[in-house]
Amino acid sequence: MFTNMPSKVQKYDTAIQNVEQLITKCYPEKIVELNELLGMPMFKPRDLEELRQELCIPVLPPVLAENHCDGCIDDQPQSKRALTDVIVAGCPAVTCSPVPCNKTVCEMIKVVQTIVRTLIKQANFLNMWITVLTIQSGSAICASIQEDINDEFKKIELNAIDCFKMISEYFAVRDKTLALVAKYPHAEEHRKAVVEIDEKTCLSLTKVVCDVRNNYSLLIDVATKNWIKLKSSFNANTYS
């Protein structure tokens, strides 16, 4: 009955150490890191004019289309009459160079994706170790704490999914808007729409970083408030 006791105790001690390291070291360090990131020029409040980027889609001059027809009959139906000189404005723009992505937004997206993935990994790590403690100790208190942590993890997971969905939608919507710019280069509204999309995404990405920082704070708060109860209950059930 007691042959495996030392190995079990060692596993419990390892679990406790891992959880304590997350709560007391890893999470606080991430909060400091994210605070510093929000103070960097990339995420710092800025003049949104800086986000504007040349689209490399020229506005072509009006084209004079000549279509003369000798011997045209005036009494022909309108649909069959030959067209006279017509000014065609806003021909589709033809460009040999690719239309670039917004460099600033793309750099922010790379940073945010890494931050969100790290949050999911570390939150899942905490949830896993508390689940291990709950199963091994069989304590009702541990189970209650594990449910609280699991609820927070589900919220974090849903927020992460929304973040990646927002990023994919940004590229899809921007692509469609750029197609309209290329098709109707004379329409200023489409060009302004591209700028608005970039500005909105920039603000949304900054908000994501703030939310991730707040999620770390919530995990620390939930874990710290319940850690003494969890640890005492775990020790009571393990060594009794």
Rank of each mutant, 00 (worst) to 15 (best):
Q136C: 13
D151P: 03
V116D: 01
F164E: 02
M166A: 11
L178F: 05
I120N: 06
E189G: 07
A187W: 04
E189A: 10
Q136H: 08
Q122K: 15
L119T: 07
W129C: 11
H186F: 13
L203H: 10
T118M: 15
A172N: 06
E189V: 10
K192L: 04
V194M: 09
Q122N: 11
R174Q: 03
K121P: 00
S144G: 09
I161Y: 08
A172Q: 00
A143P: 11
C202E: 07
E188D: 14
S168Y: 00
F164G: 06
K207M: 08
I135P: 03
L203N: 15
R117Q: 08
C142I: 06
N150R: 12
L180C: 09
K155T: 10
I130T: 10
K176N: 09
W129D: 11
A193S: 03
V116P: 01
R117W: 01
I161F: 06
V181N: 06
A160I: 03
P185N: 05
Y170N: 07
L119V: 02
E147R: 10
K165H: 08
C142T: 02
I145L: 04
Y184C: 04
N124F: 10
V209T: 05
A140S: 09
R174Y: 01
K155Y: 06
H190Y: 14
K154N: 08
F171K: 02
A123T: 07
V132G: 01
E196V: 10
K121Q: 13
E169W: 00
L158M: 08
A143H: 12
N150F: 06
